[in-house]
């Protein structure tokens, strides 16, 4: 009993620690006057009205969603077949992809961004300052996570044996991949895709240097509002948080529905 209490206390401390910044931000975003008291003296929803009625905010939100989702999907579309083929059939090249997947971690964001600008603002692929360079940059940011996720999922389901079983049952390699491998790794990959999405959704350094105001995402929008009003910024942060939360909930529910569909069929 005493031990259980300790568990609750520990969990509570962590929860409080994690939620205090968020709670204070929320309070600040609905505070009208908050100077010399513990809690705000008066409340208002004016800051939210200001954010929600600003068309720039909605556009920025749309861009953030678009670029993050597009990058994650692009990365999945490239990495799933690549990692599958390398881990299953070209084992000797695995070390190269491992090295490649470490590089993004070892290069600081600023160096990376400046390098990309230098390469892509002239020459045959002149995409500097456009959304396309951001798509490419984001691809590289999430690539290591996707590599690990796909690889782990393939190992967990013993993809090699499943492929062999499917092929012995008259499936071609492509059919085996589509009907057997893909459905079984999708659940694990969704979780990683969601993490990658959150990572990109909150990305600032690369976006600011590579495209800046030319493609205003939520983070850039927040940055421009920084000197305007702290309350407004807090409201933007809370809205941003709610967006990520809703998306996470949607994805996990969708995941449960997918795996629950065949589960419901027993009765």
């Amino acid at each position: 009993m005493r031990r259980k209490l300790m568990h609750y206390i520990a969990a509570a401390i962590i929860l409080i620690y994690l939620s205090i910044p968020l709670a204070v931000t929320f309070l600040y975003s609905i505070a009208q006057k908050w100077q010399s008291s513990v809690l705000p003296e008066s409340y208002t929803i004016a800051w939210y009205q200001a954010v929600l009625s600003d068309i720039r905010f909605w556009n920025a939100l749309g861009r953030s969603f678009f670029i993050s989702i597009a990058s994650v999907i692009l990365c999945l579309a490239v990495m799933i077949p690549t990692v599958f083929i390398i881990t299953m059939y070209l084992k000797k090249y695995e070390k190269y992809i491992e090295i490649i997947s470490i590089i993004p971690f070892s290069i600081p964001g600023v160096v990376y961004a400046v390098g990309l600008i230098r390469i892509y603002s002239k020459g045959p692929v002149n995409i500097g300052g456009t959304v396309w360079i951001l798509l490419g940059a984001f691809f590289i940011v999430v690539m290591p996570y996707m590599y690990q996720a796909v690889r782990n999922c393939l190992m967990t389901i013993d993809a090699r044996q499943l492929m062999e079983a499917a092929e012995l049952l008259n499936a071609t390699k492509l059919q085996a991949f589509v009907h057997v491998i893909l459905p079984n790794i999708m659940k694990g990959i969704t979780v990683s895709a969601l993490l990658a999405f959150s990572l990109l959704f909150g990305e600032f350094v690369l976006t600011n240097i590579l495209v800046g105001g030319a493609f205003e995402t939520v983070q850039i929008y927040l940055f421009t509002k920084q000197n305007f009003s702290g309350h407004l910024c807090s409201a933007i942060v809370i809205m941003y948080f709610i967006c990520v939360l809703v998306l996470s909930l949607l994805t996990t529910t969708a995941n449960k529905l997918i795996s629950g569909r065949s589960r419901g069929g027993i009765q």
Binding site: D158, E164, A165, E167, L168, L169, N184
Partner: peptide, 21 residues
Amino acid sequence: GPRDRGIGMVFQSYALFPNMT
């Protein structure tokens, strides 16, 4: 290839497809 040999096989770990009934 394995699919053209007319062979049925049961693996030690069965290798059943977890996404199917």
